[in-house]
């Protein structure tokens, strides 16, 4: 009886049917929207995550020898693989370090007349100082903070270099990149391992 009272006055069975049809339509519409949203998110995800999810590791920042900051211990507890480091440094969606820095030893990997190796290892930018001999200038612990968070390594310079392993203090981060680092801990270590080989003396 109470139920009856709650019903709209003129409820007939055809109205029921109509309501049902509408419900189904709305549900179908909603699910396509949600699904395509999901697909969109998936697509975006690949902008920020390729291979492994770059969660930010805990690390301890201490004063360096020549820089105001350094990180002594490897981010994930183990030293990286220098050869892999090169791959992340040239990968446009990973470090893309060579878009700003010249690294002569990486340029030397371009085989003459081979477009594939040129587009991979070539075309270095001129925005930042060349990285040749960088291991003569900085310790491993300092190189680590430069890659992790250049803002802490060069606090007075308003540096253009991105912080590759920091998630805080960033504004309007694109969708699924939120809360993640640009480079995973192990990839940072791979790059640091390569940088320590860049000696000229």
């Amino acid at each position: 009886m109470i139920g009856n009272e709650l019903k709209p006055k003129s409820e007939g069975s055809w109205r029921h049917l109509l309501a049902r049809v509408i419900c189904v339509c709305v549900a179908a519409l909603l699910s396509t929207v949600l699904l395509s949203g999901e697909a969109f998110a998936q697509r975006k995800k690949t902008a920020c995550i390729s291979g492994e999810t770059p969660r930010v590791a805990r690390y301890k920042v201490e004063k360096g020898e020549t820089l105001p900051a350094s990180i002594k211990a490897p981010l994930n507890g183990k030293r990286g693989n220098a050869e892999k480091g090169v791959e992340w440094m040239v990968d446009r969606r990973q470090g893309n370090c060579v878009s700003c820095h010249v690294v002569t030893k990486i340029l030397e990997r371009v085989k003459e007349g081979d477009h594939e190796s040129e587009s991979k290892y070539g075309f270095h930018g001129t925005i930042a100082p060349p990285l040749d001999g960088v291991a003569d200038r900085y310790s491993e612990a300092e190189l680590r903070i430069i890659v992790v968070d250049a803002k802490q390594a060069f606090p007075d310079m308003n540096t253009a270099m991105p912080a590759y392993h920091r998630k805080d203090g960033l504004e309007r981060v694109l969708g699924d990149c939120k809360g993640l680092a640009i480079l995973s801990a192990s990839r940072v270590e791979d790059i640091v391992a390569y940088l320590t080989t860049l000696k000229e003396q």
Binding site: P162, L170, E171, R172
Partner: peptide, 14 residues
């Protein structure tokens, strides 16, 4: 001037 995004760049930075 405002820095934005995961890379933390403003228009001015480039």
């Amino acid at each position: 001037e405002q820095r934005r995004g995961q890379m933390g760049f403003g228009c001015a930075n480039c």
